[in-house]
Simulated scan of single mutants.
Amino acid sequence: MTLKSMTGFARADGTHGDTNWFWEVRSVNGRSLDLRLRLPPGLERLEPQVRARCQEQLARGNCTMSLSVKRDAGQLEIRLNETALAEAYAVAEQARKQTLLEPAKLDTLLGMRGVVEVAEPEESDEQREAFAAALLAGLSEALDQLVAARVAEGERLTEVIEAQLAAIETLVAQAKAIMAKQPELIATRLRDQIARLDEAGASLDPERLHQEGLLLAAKADIQEELDRLIAHVAAARELIASGQPAGRKLEFLAQEFNREANTTCSKAADIEISRIGLELKSVIDQLREQVQNIE
């Protein structure tokens, strides 16, 4: 199974009778499912059904759906609103008298809102329902295309995330190999420090030195952090394999990854552990950026 991206675009065209239409659907990242609809006047009644179909196929993302409808001009009736024309002419004449300018031309009057009306032919309830069904079928086609686009992008993201998880595993393995040498390194460091103090004539309590050595070893122990990092890698892979929307859970895991990497860096008693901790933080930051694109 692969993850789904929240980014995609789709368009579906169609014709019903004398009407051409097309849907455009696009989505980008979002914390939840945010639907924004742009429906032509007179088709607002479709909004509940449009939202329901989107919610069936999309779990997250800021999604914009726009519908454009164009009827055959031959089927439209153009009417002259004589009352509106008379009122427009009267206003134009009044303005002419006050300004002494030339009278308004006919094309100017006809271009005023309400003077010329475009009326669509009357439709029966059955015709309206058939048209709505055709539009909703087109929406379903557009949503299928959008989901396919998000799946394709999700496949690419899955490959990137899997590579990042593998990189985390490799870095953890390197840290564990160094950890096996930590007691010896701490003991060597203490012996060197004790030798310098002895040369300075300082009096040291062997029991206290032993306790200090144990304390340093405990502070430098990052075994729990490394074990939790491996557990988080396994959890991330389970989420990927589940086939379910996993973006939010992966974002939470990325925070946990980062917490363990920070602790590893703060407890590092060796320059190599510090280096690995910084590399872990870099890979985890890249992982966090990628999972923000996941549905």
Rank of each mutant, 00 (worst) to 15 (best):
E126S: 08
I284G: 03
G30V: 04
R71Y: 02
I178M: 12
N20H: 14
Q98R: 08
S140C: 09
A220V: 10
I78V: 15
I78D: 01
R60I: 04
L109C: 06
I168F: 13
F22C: 06
L101Q: 10
A195T: 00
R150S: 12
I284W: 04
F252G: 07
D144Q: 15
M112L: 14
I276N: 04
G247Q: 05
A217Y: 04
T64C: 07
E120C: 02
W21I: 06
V291L: 10
S266W: 01
D144P: 11
G247E: 05
A173D: 15
F22T: 00
E225V: 01
E117W: 07
E77D: 13
V25I: 11
A95F: 08
E44W: 01
R11P: 11
E289P: 10
D221W: 04
Q145H: 08
A148R: 12
L43W: 10
M6E: 09
A137G: 12
E129P: 04
I178N: 13
Q286W: 02
C265W: 03
D221R: 08
K281A: 02
F257C: 06
R237K: 13
L46R: 09
G30S: 06
E122K: 14
G8H: 01
E117K: 12
D18Q: 14
E207Q: 12
A142Y: 04
S140Y: 07
S27F: 05
A234T: 15
L197M: 04
Q164V: 12
F257I: 00
A132M: 08
L146H: 09
G277H: 08
D270A: 11
A166V: 10
R208C: 03
L287R: 03
Q182M: 14
E207M: 05
R259C: 03
A268F: 09
A200M: 09
L109I: 09
P245S: 01
L215E: 05
P48I: 00
D198M: 01
I240T: 07
E289L: 02
I222G: 03
P103T: 08
C63M: 08
V291T: 10
N62L: 12
A119G: 01
K267T: 03
F252L: 03
R191P: 02
E207S: 06
E295V: 01
D144N: 15
S66W: 08
G8L: 01
I168S: 12
I168H: 06
N293P: 15
L253K: 11
A88L: 11
A73V: 08
A241H: 13
L85D: 09
L67M: 08
V283G: 00
K97L: 15
A73R: 11
E141P: 07
Q75V: 12
V283L: 02
T64N: 11
L146P: 14
Y89E: 14
E260R: 00
V69T: 06
P41R: 14
A180L: 15
T64E: 09
E199D: 10
P48K: 00
E126K: 11
